[in-house]
Design a protein around this nucleic acid. Sequence first.
DNA 1: CTAAACATGTAAAGCGTTACATGATTCG
DNA 2: CGAATCATGTAACGCTTTACATGTTTAG
Lengths: 192, 192
Amino acid sequence: MSLRYALLALLRVGPLSGYELQKLFSESVGHVWHAPDSQIYPELKRMEANGLIQGEDQTRGERGRRRIYHVTDAGTADFSDWINGPLDYSRVRDPAHLRAAYLESASPEAARDFLAAHAAQHTELLHRWQDEIARIRSGSHPMVQRRLAAIPESERERAVEFKVFAYEGLAQRAESEIRWAEQGLRLLDRLS
Amino acid sequence: MSLRYALLALLRVGPLSGYELQKLFSESVGHVWHAPDSQIYPELKRMEANGLIQGEDQTRGERGRRRIYHVTDAGTADFSDWINGPLDYSRVRDPAHLRAAYLESASPEAARDFLAAHAAQHTELLHRWQDEIARIRSGSHPMVQRRLAAIPESERERAVEFKVFAYEGLAQRAESEIRWAEQGLRLLDRLS
DNA sequence: CTAAACATGTAAAGCGTTACATGATTCG
DNA sequence: CGAATCATGTAACGCTTTACATGTTTAG
């Protein structure tokens, strides 16, 4: 259900075509809520069927066409309900910690590879989050750029602060995962 | 696909009926990989169809019956492939951080509620992980009890250490989430 | 006898992944 | 004229959730 609100969050700032939305998505909200285009187009159709957004067809050249969507009042209300309502937490389902719990059954090399890969995975994510924070702060982020025109100065600061806050949380989590993997590597050393 | 290996991990220690497995599951591996019984029974059927486990029917009283499953050689091999193979990480899809990124659109009270609930959620998890660690170390954990009979002294220490390691990772993550939520509450104070 | 625990599922719907599929336009 | 980019999807499959569904045995 969150995909819907991730899309709505972008569309609220201004009308977009499915394609534009998808491009913008992948370099902004898509970082915290991944979705491929094959999921975005059908979801837009469903949202239109539900009255949350309204699309209008445009022509492009001779035969080209595209559909520009904008948020309806019902869509604005729905987004507001979501952002102000409770969030339900899904049950824990964690492949890495599941595996870690049974690592005595793996070969020492495989165990080491797993932990090194875990650290590498989260190091990559950490860099991504740090880059995003830098881009948001510097104003070069596409999301921030769109907002410049859409919201007043006063709201802008709040918007930037919350985005940075969100990505800092992800960065801290990544750091925590890296520390954990390193603890695991030291544990392997001790046990061998 | 991980559910399969979570089940195999338990069955490897010794044969169990679906019901026993499900009970044991919910108080051990189920903490890191949740699954309801309605998912466990069909998965057992599928695993048997794939030759990873073999079931045998037992009678219970007059008309009662139950099916006891044990792991086959193919199942052991499959588990080994999984534990020694690479783990693929799924794309980021995080409802809490998605919401945090758009928190400027929420009312101040709703934002505060959200962050307080996030801290509460992870405080509860933290306690769960800490309890699990204590239970594992003290040997009162059902999983550890079953292992006592099944594996030699030398392997036992390794098994316990890795379980503790896994739950410590989850505890550290919970602590990180709580710190983040508290940072968010302070940010709200600053912005108001 | 009745409640708790034992025992095992089915059905429907939604979400997500992967692969496939097609065509138009613009820029160099 | 060819490549990149614009533009929009469908199909099949698998996992997860939620709700429903049914019956037996044992202990008090």
